[in-house]
Amino acid sequence: MESKLMHVFPEKCTACRNCEQACAFAHLHEGRPTRARIRADADPQQREGKNVLVVCYQCDAAACVAACPANALWRDMKTGAVYHVESRCIRCSSCVAACPFGNMRWEPLRQWPSKCDLCGGDPVCTRFCPTGAIQYK
């Protein structure tokens, strides 16, 4: 297994939402940042430097994997990421309901769940972060 990990530095995040745009373009091929698999959660009180990037933690004991009745969530042994196999998915939305962090997201237009799969080992979002708040190293 590769030893690279997704590193998130909330103190560096300016909530510019470049990562959301990059993710939306990479996975949906359209600029729909609200459906991105990474979310820059801006501080509700608008204090500067208090934004948090919320992206899948690829949990070891993942609730989404436990909840899936169809074994449609598999772990990529190369990157350690849990990825969603669309051809096995029965779209019951159990995984979306089960994730405690909101990183398993429901796409209402396509009626599919979606999650961060680390882009197969080269996360697009990290390349577009201007401050280095999200790094893959």
Partner: peptide, 15 residues
């Protein structure tokens, strides 16, 4: 308990 919050609000809770 995780089932009673929608995915977008869970992101806010995590943040």
């Amino acid at each position: 308990e995780d089932f009673h919050v929608c995915d977008a609000c869970k992101v806010g809770k995590t943040g």
